[in-house]
Design a protein around this nucleic acid. Structure first.
Length: 632
RNA sequence: GGAGCUGUGGUGUAGAUGGUUAACAUAUCGGCCUGUCAAGCCGAAGAUCGCGGGUUCGAGUCCCGUCAGCUCCGCCA
């Protein structure tokens, strides 16, 4: 049965083209002076003729007007220096008592973050007064006229880079936080990245199409944010977890090449790299083929790194099946900047007298080891902590061995004869002074736990250059022990691999999906799949997922119907814009690159959202709040 | 749902083992000061130590609870 295996696009060698071509257009940030369109009312009319940070010695002797915020003030009595800051940077203003008492008196009242417009002459600083730390350090503005446009309360923290303040405070006064140059720089970089994306996609004929923010809740996947409907009391919209269904429907519509920079919403617990609302670069294609999609994505990512970091990224990216990623690195998003691979020990462990190993193997599990180079520095307490960590991650325990001159020092060495110890030591390429860690458990637990420890114990000197990787051949399903049913690993519209179709009935867990993730240095930056474009196959998958005929018709009828009207083979990918930008800026948390982010408890410290609403609003929606349950 | 860490003038911190005027830096305000760029010097004001209980003659410090933030596990197709 045809299930959605994509064919190569025959009519042109797009793949080759994508691999070789470098978009010529550069999306540099243009200084505002060079804007091509003259505004009807001249730009920055009477307050401002130039930007602070863009001035240089070429402007010496020019009469200009600047406007911005008062930064640091250095008051020498009869001479006052002000750092005037605007979006572009900083310019030193000089107020001299000798040049007019009235103006000077006025300047004495200036305080941090006052908004001022000034007029004067750009002058060259004398040699000994040049500030090499400042781009405009060779010049200054001798102020001859000033207008105070607004005053300011003393800000709660310094408006400058590298401040050391509680993030609470920054979030509460985010508008001031964003006034800091490094934060404005992040906004600028993000803007530039998005512009590069739009121009790139446009060059390859992709159409940016908007999809609804108010849509319907779907049973699979993350928890939805719900929005009550006033005209339909008791009914709810859901905010989209992604435009998944709409982009597939756009393929049925014949758009063929779609993309969107789009906000998505998931009501799940947060992390440093997860926000309740986040932005995706969403892409979907028809008649395109997976090779083209990979090349397109690689080209896009490489473009970002080239334009923003000047780094040439090697293409094509490495590809690795999911099973290999798990076996070698214990993760479906392995960090390839360092080796420290997990070592498969099943065949050796079975020869030991160690029950933990042998019984795990008898139960169909796996035994794997991780070599910690120079691990002898670890104390007994460190190892106990690691053991506790392993338990918390779901393992039954963690075995450890000190490799010493005379062999193993370990509570478990008595279960191994000398030859076996030697074999394991040599398989793990261990040397004297190393510590070996072992987990014996279900295969997935073993991989997961050791993969976590691998990251946890990663060497400090990891390679600085980015390691991109495609993880492919994900399983189509996993089994949910709690719900006692199969669940889609990616999403329920993912096409199985054609050669695995026969396994759908006999061994669903063995079926591989046409799904892929794009991984960079241990971070998942995107993922996608070839979709099912056959309504019969789609119905079959729904059934396997435990959705009854009525249920799937009720929830996804529109999709099944659409698929029956000549749906083309299609597939796509979505890239996490926030994560991409955070990687480009080198930030640990995506909150740094989101202008108005939420906290780990999903509240906004600035607006106070979420917040209660008036009773009248609830009445209109026919909603009643439940009393909070009292504790028993 | 669970675990860990953090919470002291506006801000960043110090306050071993409980002991009475809670320290320092910086910002703020006032004074002096014409080449600074984290300007400098002098002075002043500014804190019921996140909140609520408890133990104690006495709590910033110990105990319990609670709130907020951060990080992680679960969760996030």
């Amino acid at each position: 049965m045809e299930s959605g295996e994509q064919q190569e696009l025959p009519r042109e060698s797009l793949h080759e083209k994508l691999l070789q071509e470098q978009p010529a257009e550069k999306a540099a940030v243009r200084p505002p002076e060079k804007a091509e369109v003259t505004l009807p009312a001249p730009d920055i009319p009477d307050k401002k003729t130039h930007y602070c940070g863009l001035l240089n010695t070429g402007y010496v002797n020019s009469r200009i007007r600047l406007a911005g915020w008062v930064g640091r003030r250095r008051d020498h009595g009869g001479l006052i220096f002000i750092d005037l800051r605007d979006r572009s940077g900083v310019m030193q203003l000089v107020f001299d008592q000798k040049l007019g008492a009235g103006l000077f008196e006025e300047s004495e009242s200036l305080r941090s973050e006052y908004v001022v417009a000034v007029e004067g002459e750009v002058v060259r600083r004398s040699e000994e007064n040049i500030n090499p730390a400042l781009p405009t350090g060779e010049i200054e503005l001798r102020v001859e006229a000033m207008e105070v446009l607004n005053t300011s309360k003393t800000p709660p923290f310094y408006i400058e880079d590298d401040i050391n303040v509680d993030e609470n405070l920054r979030l509460r006064y985010r508008y001031l936080d964003l006034r800091r140059p490094e934060m404005l720089g992040r906004l600028q970089l993000r803007h530039r990245a998005v512009k590069l994306v739009r121009d790139y996609m446009d060059r390859y004929d992709f159409l940016e199409v908007e999809t609804p923010m108010l849509t319907r809740s779907t049973p699979e996947g993350a928890r939805d944010f719900l929005v009550p409907s006033r005209p339909h009391p008791g009914d709810f919209y859901a905010l989209p977890q992604s435009p998944q269904l709409f982009k597939q429907l756009l393929m049925v519509s014949g758009v063929e090449r779609y993309f969107q920079v789009v906000r998505c919403f998931r009501d799940e617990d947060l992390r440093a790299d997860r926000q309740p609302e986040f932005t995706q670069i969403d892409i979907e294609t028809s008649f395109f083929g997976i090779e083209n999609l990979f090349a397109l994505t690689e080209g896009l990512v490489a473009l970002l790194w080239k334009e923003i970091h000047g780094v040439e990224i090697k293409r094509p990216f490495l590809r690795m099946p999911y099973s290999e990623a798990m076996n070698r690195f214990g993760s479906d998003k392995p960090d390839l900047r360092f080796a420290m691979e997990l070592v498969d020990l099943n065949d050796l462990a079975v020869k030991s007298q160690f029950k933990v190993f042998t019984s795990a193997l008898e139960g169909g599990g796996a035994v794997k080891g991780l070599r910690v180079k120079g691990g002898q520095k670890m104390s007994r307490k460190d190892l106990d902590d690691l053991t506790l960590l392993a338990r918390q991650l779901g393992a039954r325990g963690l075995a450890w061995v000190f490799v010493e001159e005379n062999g193993w020092r370990s509570p478990i060495s008595k279960f191994f004869d000398d030859a076996l110890m030697a074999d394991i030591t040599s398989r793990m390429e261990a040397e004297e002074g190393d510590v070996l860690l072992f987990v014996a458990d279900r295969w997935d637990t073993t991989c997961h736990v050791l993969g976590y420890l691998r990251r946890h114990l990663a060497p400090e000197d990891i390679a600085p250059e980015p390691h991109f990787l495609w993880v492919v051949d994900f399983p189509l399903f996993h089994y949910d022990d709690e719900e006692q049913r199969y669940e889609s690993d990616h999403h329920p519209f993912t096409a199985p691999r054609v050669e695995d179709l026969p396994l759908l009935e006999s061994d669903p867990l063995a079926v591989r999906a046409q799904a892929y993730d794009l991984v960079l240095d241990g971070v998942e930056i995107g993922g996608g799949s070839t979709r099912i474009h056959d309504s019969t196959v789609q119905s079959g998958i729904f059934k396997l997922l435990g959705l009854s005929e009525e249920e799937s018709r009720e929830k996804f009828g529109f999709l099944l119907e659409a698929l029956s009207y000549g749906a083309p083979p299609h597939g796509g990918i979505a890239l996490g814009l926030d994560r991409l930008v955070a990687l480009l800026t080198g930030d640990e948390s995506i909150r740094q690159v989101i202008p108005f982010p939420k906290t780990a408890a999903a509240s906004c410290l600035m607006t106070g959202a979420p917040a209660g609403v008036a009773g009248k609003q609830l009445e209109e929606l026919k909603l009643k709040l439940q009393k909070q349950e009292e504790e028993e």
